[in-house]
C-alpha cells in the first residue's frame, strides 16, 4: 500500500552555531519504507541534520515534520541511534542494561522495567546476534559489537522510523553484514531507515535513496541520479583524486565484479 504521508519532511531548515550556518536552507521529503543515505564530506552538516530532525538542536529557521506531524506527537515511532563515539563505553552497564534503555519513555521512567520490556530487549539482542554477550559489560565488547548494542536498543523501541548516525564506522565485516541484513528485514516490514554514511564506495549498494549535503543540499534522489561527477564535485570540491576514484568505483558498480572476470 502506498502511503501519501512522508516519513520525514524537512522544510527550509537552517541550523547555525555561533552565527555560522552549518546547514543552509535544506529541503527534502523522504518516502516511507526506504533505506535512505545521507552523505557528504566531513563537516557538511550530516550529524547536525539528524540532530535537528530529532529535536536535539534548535534550528534557526525552518521546520521538520515526521509522518506529517510534529516530533512530539510521534516520538514513540522514531528511534535514534547516536554515533558510537558519543558515549563513554566504560559506563557500568551490561548489554542488556543498555538495550533495556530502548524501552524507556518520558512517561515510564518511574516504574520498573517489566516482563514485556525484558522480552522485547532479549529479542532485539538476538536479532543483532549478541545473545551470548547479553550480560557482558559494554566496555568489554569490540567496536562492532558496541554498534550492534546501539542498534538493538533502537530495535527495542519498536519504531517505524530509524535515524542512525554512522553505524558502519569502524565495524568488522560480521557487524556490517548483520546490520545490512537487518536493514533489509526492516525495509520488508515497511520501516523507514535514515543513515548517515561517509563511505562513497558502498552507497549505491546500501541505499534506495540519497541525500547529498554540503551545508546546502547538493542533490537528492536515487543513487544513480545523485552520484554524478558534477554533484560530487559540488559537494567534495577540489578533492580531485578522491573524486576520480569515486567515479571509477561507481562505474565499476554498474558492471558487477564477476562480469569483469569474464572480460579478462
Amino acid at each position: 500500500m502506498k502511503q501519501d504521508i512522508h516519513a520525514i519532511e524537512v522544510h527550509n531548515l537552517t541550523v547555525s552555531y555561533d552565527g555560522r550556518p552549518v546547514l543552509w536552507d535544506i529541503d527534502f521529503n523522504l518516502e516511507c519504507g526506504k533505506i535512505i543515505g545521507v552523505i557528504g564530506p566531513n563537516g557538511s552538516g550530516k550529524t547536525t541534520s539528524l540532530k535537528a530532525i530529532m529535536g536535539l538542536l534548535k534550528p534557526s529557521s525552518g521546520f521538520v515534520k515526521i509522518f506529517g506531524k510534529s516530533l512530539d506527537e510521534v516520538r514513540d515511532r522514531v528511534a535514534y541511534v547516536p554515533q558510537r563515539e558519543s558515549v563513554d563505553w566504560d559506563f557500568p552497564a551490561s548489554v542488556l542494561d543498555v538495550v533495556l534503555m530502548g524501552r524507556y519513555r518520558g512517561t515510564n521512567l518511574f516504574r520498573r522495567s517489566n516482563k514485556t520490556d525484558l522480552e522485547i530487549a532479549l529479542q532485539s539482542i538476538a536479532k543483532v546476534g549478541l545473545t551470548e554477550f547479553k550480560d557482558r559489560q559494554i566496555s568489554q565488547l569490540s567496536g562492532g559489537q558496541q554498534q550492534r548494542v546501539f542498534i538493538a536498543r533502537a530495535l527495542a523501541q519498536q519504531a517505524d522510523l530509524y535515524l542512525m548516525d554512522e553505524p558502519f564506522v569502524g565495524v568488522d565485516a560480521a557487524t556490517e553484514s548483520a546490520i545490512l541484513s537487518l536493514l533489509q528485514e526492516m525495509k520488508n516490514q515497511g520501516k523507514t531507515v535514515l543513515i548517515i554514511h561517509h563511505d562513497l564506495q558502498t552507497v549505491s549498494d546500501y541505499f534506495d535513496y540519497l541525500v547529498l549535503l554540503n551545508t546546502r543540499l547538493i542533490a537528492k534522489g536515487e543513487p544513480h541520479e545523485v552520484l554524478t561527477k558534477e554533484n560530487l564535485s559540488n559537494a567534495y570540491g577540489g578533492q580531485l583524486t578522491l573524486l576520480s576514484k569515486i567515479v571509477d568505483l561507481i562505474r565499476q558498480n554498474e558492471f558487477p565484479v564477476r562480469e569483469k572476470g569474464v572480460d579478462l
Binding site: 530529532m54 529535536g55 536535539l56 516520538r75 558519543s86 559506563f91 552497564a93 519513555r105 518520558g106
Partner: peptide
C-alpha cells in the same frame, strides 16, 4: 548519565 542525547530523543 550514559547517553543524554538518546534520553532527549525518547522524550525525557
Amino acid at each position: 548519565s550514559f547517553n543524554e542525547d538518546f534520553a532527549k530523543s525518547v522524550g525525557i
